[in-house]
Design a protein around this nucleic acid. Structure first.
Lengths: 193, 193
DNA sequence: AAAATCACTTGATCTGGATCAATGTTTTTA
DNA sequence: TAAAAACATTGATCCAGATCAAGTGATTTT
């Protein structure tokens, strides 16, 4: 269950066997069926989840009932509504599984305790957050400075795995464009080649 | 010089006098005149800078010569091209001063050493990065899901200080809209009231 | 295995915000 | 303190991408 988990962590910081055993105690495994919610709008996000298997997404619903996909997480990624998780305020987002998933979850209390007890995990998260900032920055710039077609190309290049795993209408939503526009972009790109 | 700096840090973690003295040794002060560059496109971003005074911005220049403002930093904020700073790759961005500024700067080597030597600073940055992720997420959602007018309102509400300090055409650029559109939005909003 | 829902495509039309252009205003620089 | 540069506003026009509408497979549900 913790195989992928420690592989990922040990890529950034090296934990001793003792540290690994301690870290394990903070996490609870959970299985999620396709379409099952991990978090629903209005609830407080109680868990930060590591995805061992499957795919999660987070999204919100606007005034007109339109869904906007905010994030996704494949194997090896983390998922939560960071704001709600850290502040304890109710979330504006939903998180559910796009594919059956296996998660390792930690509560905020567990997380904070672990930061104190296992300094190397604080390092791990500092580094993880650094990298997260870099990729959010990339997405932000994409979203502000590029055309719909360029956004799609940049995403497809930086995350080719996604295209296999996530339905196109969700990719469109993630890019902030409509499925119709994405369909036309893909048609256009395939004709070019 | 370090007054605001330690005020900010001590809001998140409490440093002892000894820790403060050690932390100081990693930082170099620097003054920047209005319009002076801290970083130019093509250079590696060698410093992470804390803004003691003044205002910085980062921006890039697109193929058509258009400038896109990516970030700004007022007093108490940090500024760098995170990606270039951490990876050592040349930056695609420029950073300069919008107002005369006083900075405290640290190199990557200094930063990494400080993370090891002063664990409480690693905690500080872990928390800083957490919060940074939350605000980037907010901006991202704004940019994907809201109209130009809503984006402006959200920014004005979450960062009222900005409106006083930063010229409107840069605010427009930060929001990913044109100055003309921003001008019309502001006219429209002022007529409403 | 029929019905319902979901995913994707294609076409026609509409629109928010961009672009182009001109003018006024404020700030900087020499 | 005059000239130049930067900033902001307003108007006219244009277009990338949204919206609306309809149709075709896939996949899920019963």
């Amino acid at each position: 269950m913790f195989k992928l988990f420690f592989t990922h962590i040990n890529q950034k910081v090296s934990l001793t066997a003792a540290e690994q055993n301690e870290v394990k105690t903070y996490f609870t495994p959970k299985k999620l069926r396709r379409k099952q919610y991990l978090l629903q709008e209005g609830e407080v996000c109680r868990y930060l989840a590591f995805v061992e298997k499957g795919v999660l997404r987070s999204y919100n619903v606007d005034a007109k009932g339109g869904e906007h996909m905010i994030h996704f997480a494949l194997e090896g990624w983390w998922m939560a509504d960071t704001y709600s998780f850290l502040s304890g305020e109710p979330s504006n987002y939903n998180i559910d599984a796009i594919e059956d998933a296996e998660l390792l979850m930690i509560t905020l209390e567990g997380f904070e305790q672990m930061m104190v007890q296992v300094p190397r995990m604080e390092r791990y998260f500092r580094i993880l957050f650094q990298n997260n900032i870099i990729s959010k920055e990339r997405r932000l710039i994409s979203s502000i400075s590029y055309s719909a077609e360029e956004k799609y190309i940049r995403l497809a290049e930086s995350n080719p795995q996604l295209m296999q795993r996530i339905p196109l209408h969700l990719i469109a939503s993630y890019l902030g464009i409509t499925p119709e526009t994405l369909s036309r972009i893909r048609k256009h790109l395939s004709q070019k080649k």
